[in-house]
Amino acid sequence: MAVKIGITGPVGSIKADALAKIMEMIRNQGKEVQGVLVGEVFEQNRLTGYTIFDIYSKKKVVFAEIGLVSRVKIDKIGVDTKLLEEILIPSLQRARETADVIVIDEIGKLELTTKNVQKEINDTLNYTKPMIVTVHKKSRNPVLQEIRALEGVRVFDITPINRSLLPYRVMKVLNGEEVS
């Protein structure tokens, strides 16, 4: 059975920093990491949008920004659902076919955008490959509950205190070593 790892934590860069370190460690083992990363766009210290980055193709686009008129919103920011789907869907389909480890960053924000995105994420979550997902820590986030319910899932809560050790703990789990 494939290991699935969830990383939860507060808003800020510590989840992204830990994920970048984990991805580097996986690559150093000669394994292929694919999937999507979500980034925040700031202007004058104000959140103004979100980017999505396809790890394989290295294509990065702003798929959500203030002022974008859309029925779909993330944190009150309009989402270009067509652009999001153009990056996310082929990225996850390719990852299921060719990656050794699949990454989906900020899964909670993405999953609530469109039915197509939701289906792609669910198909990927239920696929039999090792996977790492990050989720913003909100106690009642339904996506987090779904992830916790999957078979073989380990959820790690990242904090400023454990942030430097967490990538090593995640790697032990990915490599089949028991971690308490």
Rank of each mutant, 00 (worst) to 15 (best):
E86D: 15
D80T: 09
A95I: 08
K109T: 06
I102M: 11
I102F: 06
E86W: 01
T128P: 11
Q118A: 14
A99P: 05
E106C: 05
D123R: 14
R96K: 15
Q93I: 14
V133G: 04
P90R: 03
I132G: 03
I107F: 02
L83E: 13
L92H: 03
R94M: 13
T134E: 04
Q93A: 15
T128E: 14
T81R: 13
G108Y: 00
T113I: 07
K115T: 13
T124D: 04
L84R: 09
N122A: 13
L112F: 05
K82M: 09
V117W: 07
P90H: 08
L92V: 10
A99C: 11
P130R: 03
L92Y: 07
D105P: 02
E86I: 02
I102P: 09
Y127S: 15
N116R: 13
V117N: 06
T114Q: 11
V133C: 12
N116Q: 14
K82A: 05
V101D: 01
R94S: 14
K109I: 05
L125Y: 10
P130K: 02
T114C: 10
D100M: 11
I87K: 08
E97W: 05
E111M: 15
Q93V: 12
T114D: 11
I89K: 10
K119N: 15
I132F: 02
I104S: 01
E106W: 02
V79M: 08
S91W: 01
I102H: 07
L88E: 09
I121C: 07
E85I: 11
I107N: 01
L92R: 03
V101E: 01
M131G: 07
I104W: 03
G108H: 00
G108A: 08
I107M: 10
K109H: 09
G108R: 00
E86V: 01
L110N: 02
V101H: 05
P90A: 10
K109P: 04
N122E: 14
R96W: 08
L92M: 11
V117P: 06
